[in-house]
Write a protein that binds this DNA or RNA. Structure first.
Lengths: 210, 210
DNA sequence: TCATAAAATGACCGCTGGTCATAACTAACA
DNA sequence: TGTTAGTTATGACCAGCGGTCATTTTATGA
């Protein structure tokens, strides 16, 4: 009988519902200000139960971030096989990222968190975590498009595609940071967000053309 | 009589010595793992005294970061008035940043921290803090050099210098991040750090040339 | 209905950032 | 020098947190 299968499904459901709850609280109060008791209350479970599914608050945070990354990846899948040249696709990718950032600011926040983890201070046992994060990171899509561009001959081949892709992704993260946090620091009230984004993309992409 | 002056000096000295102690502990254990008692012990003061000079652990961290920023700024001052063209100066600036990153990894870490503060979650009363940080930020030097470049006609003028400068600074922060944390994530063992840096600079700067 | 295992609970713990009543020290004057 | 007013330093203390675990509750299968 499929009892154990059902149990497994239910366990996953419960895990998911905890992530749901954590998302709500993290996104509204911020990660640091959120307590495990908050999440327990929101999920209608006891605190102890949370620790049956996640081994720490940070672990739960990572789960939230991984889900965010999956959402972002879903928005961009299929792009690589579209009938455009690679640079246009990179442009589209950039637009997708930006609209994601606007639509899901909380999710974006969590992605920025995992992408800036200080791996030096991570215990060695967590090496696999690095690989999981990297494997799922949206930078993969960027790299694929860059490689396409090199094949098409419209992206410079004198610099390693890995470096180019990382630069583009870094730039994307920087733009997120900029739009979300630091916009007010600059005295550029006379430029719209969209305009700024176009400028950014133009600036960044003009460096990679062959 | 200069009694009160001497007192003021001594207060500043004490403040400085606390920052010294905090640096040591932060840089060796990391910010989160450091307790105020650690710093109290290192500074040979009681915990209560620390709170006479800094109103919170984060405040102390900011003081450490501001000192780091000052060190970095000192390394680059005078660059603007040198007899090179602006793009060469930007290149030099990049090299200076990189060697700073290598020489003072702890200081760099603290700078990355303040540069990525989530200002949305900062109370309004701390608006001045934003300005202080921005005013001291090394991005100022970048902006000055970009403006020089525009005047010289070697940097494109169709995009606002503010955006260009921010892109370059963002890129610098991203490169720091990359070198320090994520290098191992990429399978590019066959490229030296210096080579990678040169590629990076070339890539970034080629986008800003007019 | 009962026995076994799995899941959930919440009282509890140790540690941390931060506070505050008290103490120690300093400086100026009588 | 003794007194006093003000400043600086102390460390016992607190509340809140992440995390644990002995106990209870629930689900399963015969």
């Amino acid at each position: 009988m499929g009892t154990s299968e059902r149990k497994k499904r239910e366990k996953l459901k419960r895990r998911d519902s905890i992530i749901d709850a954590a998302e709500k609280v993290f996104f509204s109060k911020g990660f640091e200000a959120t307590t495990m008791d908050d999440i327990a209350e929101q999920s209608e479970l006891s605190k102890g139960t949370l620790y049956l599914y996640f081994k720490s608050k940070e672990d739960l945070h990572l789960a939230v971030a991984m889900r965010s990354i999956k959402i972002l990846n879903r928005l961009t899948e299929g792009l690589a096989s579209q009938a455009q040249n690679a640079i246009d696709k990179l442009n589209t990718l950039g637009h997708t990222f930006i609209s994601f950032a606007k639509q899901y600011p909380g999710h974006l926040q969590s992605i920025l968190h995992v992408e800036s983890i200080d791996f030096r201070q991570l215990s060695l046992s967590k090496t696999e975590l690095k690989h999981v994060i990297f494997k799922e990171s949206p930078v993969r899509m960027v790299m694929e498009l860059v490689q396409q561009g090199v094949s098409e001959g419209i992206i410079r081949k004198d610099i390693s595609p890995g470096i180019i892709a990382n630069m583009l992704w870094t730039q994307m993260l920087g733009l997120f940071q900029f739009v979300n946090f630091q916009k007010s620091l600059f005295e550029m009230v006379d430029i719209s967000e969209d305009e700024m984004f176009e400028n950014y993309m133009e600036l960044v992409l003009s460096g990679v053309r062959s």
